[in-house]
């Protein structure tokens, strides 16, 4: 059974179309990166999955209709919206008590063990913790929930690089076990690239690209060329081009690698560059030399 199954998901706010007919299937055990510019509909899509907003179309998460059964669904789904939503007045110990008191699949010992590895004291209030510690606390609460689906919407917003890295490392080592599903949306595309199995690019409420990471690697290739090879490289119709010092980096979709390899070095494109290539095709990419 697919973890998330969406057909023709559509959501409008007045005249604004936030989601414009999305079809999406996320299997169990996948780690999906939901990537898109501001206003692309990422948060709306995640909110629909979490049962926080009603939508047109069909949507099933773990076999349930999220909008109709949000409270039941949350027994199996954990989510972190962003670092700011833990109540500032709550004490660490109270947060543990509360989640344990209402969540049947919360493992208090696991959360305590996680917190023991941090410098967070149980008697502290959230308002007394640093941003990074608040994220650690939230992560400790979520990690200790035996959830089948974890949804992360910009979970590391405002955190420095060390915390961001630790956050995703923990996610992989402590939460992901191959059966659980993770959906993560973030602007820090390159930082999560290595943990993803699937990628969905959203633009203006539509899916621009949906593929597994293996498919991406097979379909897209990045070529690094010196200026003398640039005209030849451009002739092969790259979808994106950027220049770093004296070298140009061109991204190709479905191109023959043999032809490209003669012009320069080949490698897999970074998600951020691919994202820019698919969502905002640079005018220079198609310009004739």
């Amino acid at each position: 059974m697919a973890c998330i199954e969406a057909r023709g998901l559509r959501k409008t706010y007045g005249a604004t179309v936030a989601l414009d007919g999305i079809d999406l299937t996320v299997g169990e055990g996948r780690i999906l990166g939901l990537i898109g510019p501001n206003g692309a509909g990422k948060t709306t899509a995640l909110n629909a999955i979490l049962g926080l907003t009603p939508c047109e179309g069909e949507l099933s998460v773990l076999g349930r209709d999220p909008w109709a059964q949000r409270d039941r669904l949350m027994e199996e789904v954990a989510f972190i919206a962003d670092v700011a939503v833990l109540p500032r007045w709550i004490r660490v110990s109270q947060a543990l008590d509360y989640v344990q008191g209402v969540h049947p699949r919360f493992d208090r010992d696991a959360a305590e063990a996680f917190l023991d590895r941090t410098s967070i004291q149980r008697g502290r209030r959230v308002r007394e913790l640093s941003k990074g510690m608040v994220a650690q606390l939230h992560l400790a609460l979520v990690m200790a929930i035996d959830a089948r689906l974890l949804v992360l919407d910009e979970p590391t917003l405002g955190l420095d690089i060390l915390y961001r890295k630790a956050f995703y490392d923990t996610l992989l080592s402590d939460f992901f076990d191959g059966d659980r599903t993770i959906v993560v949306s973030t602007h820090e595309v390159d930082e999560i690239q290595h943990i993803l199995t699937d990628v969905v690019f959203l633009g203006r409420g539509r899916i621009v690209l949906a593929a597994t990471v293996e498919e991406l690697e097979a379909r897209f290739v990045e070529l690094a060329v010196r200026p003398e090879q640039l005209p030849a490289a451009r002739a092969l119709e790259p979808i994106h081009e950027r220049q770093v010092f004296d070298r140009s980096f061109l991204i190709y979709e479905g191109a023959r690698r043999d032809d490209l390899a003669k012009l320069g070095e080949l490698r897999s494109p970074g998600l951020a560059d691919l994202f820019v290539a698919k969502l905002a095709p640079a005018p220079g990419a198609r310009r004739a030399a």
Binding site: L52, D71, R72, M74, I80, A81, V102, H103, P104
Partner: peptide
Amino acid sequence: RDRTVLFWKSLPVSDLT
């Protein structure tokens, strides 16, 4: 107002409760 509703709603507690 303080957006904590997103945290409360991430837990299996119904709106009526």
